[in-house]
């Protein structure tokens, strides 16, 4: 085979595109032909040279492309981390703000908002009864329950003057206000309910 006819096959062999039979034929020829071996070497060189040519990807290449794509609506926009954070923090922030607003609006009553309200006799809640001055109620709440109960009894009695007469049940409640506010007085020493001692433990638990 002439060398010129073989050159195209040498090129294909270098590229890994020659058939096995063609490769064998070319290799046999190259083994015996110095000129074609030189051509093969030069052919490989130009291929390797082209593969080494490279452009540069500039730093802003990606950002510029994605900005254009977003402008053309070719790609969904990436949400920023700040937006995500704000969205997820909105619920707890809103709850905290509402709580702070509630505490602020309640002002001096903040203590009442947090602590359970002190039991107030039904008489004091009567719609016709005049509300006790805030200062008195506040002082009473700071004192011991029994003292506060007596004072409340007096204030209720004075507030109830000129009002409808109390029912026997209400009078009974007022008379026992001390006991209601200080349950320890019920179980005074020496007045232990003996029946309770013999109550089976299972029933106590039940």
């Amino acid at each position: 085979m002439e060398c010129l006819e073989l050159k195209e096959r040498i090129s294909a062999m270098i590229d890994g595109e020659a058939l096995p039979a063609e490769v064998r034929m070319v290799e046999e020829h190259l083994a015996a032909c110095a000129e074609c071996r030189a051509i093969e070497r030069r052919m490989r060189s130009v291929g390797a040279g082209v593969a080494r040519i490279e452009g540069e990807v500039p730093a802003g290449f990606r950002d510029a492309l994605f900005a254009r794509m977003e402008a053309e609506n070719l790609i969904p926009r990436r949400r920023s981390l700040f937006v995500f954070s704000l969205r997820w923090a909105a619920v707890p922030l809103g709850a905290a703000a509402a709580l702070a607003l509630f505490l602020f609006m309640s002002g001096g009553k903040g203590k009442d908002a947090v602590m359970p309200p002190e039991p107030v006799p039904r008489v004091a809640q009567s719609p016709t009864a005049a509300p006790a001055p805030a200062g008195i109620a506040e002082d009473a709440s700071k004192r011991l329950p029994a003292v506060a109960g007596r004072e409340r009894e007096k204030s209720v009695a004075s507030a109830g003057a000129g009002q409808e007469p109390l029912s026997p049940e209400d009078r009974d409640i007022i008379a026992n206000l001390d006991l209601l506010e200080d349950p320890a007085g019920i179980d005074a020493p020496g007045e232990v309910d003996e029946m309770e001692i013999f109550v089976p433990s299972g029933r106590r638990q039940g």
Binding site: E8, S11, A12, E17, R42, M43, V46, G49
Partner: peptide
């Protein structure tokens, strides 16, 4: 393609 690549090689060489 085979022919074009061979031609390109010849010209570059």
């Amino acid at each position: 393609v085979k022919s074009r690549i061979f031609r390109a090689r010849e010209m570059l060489m």
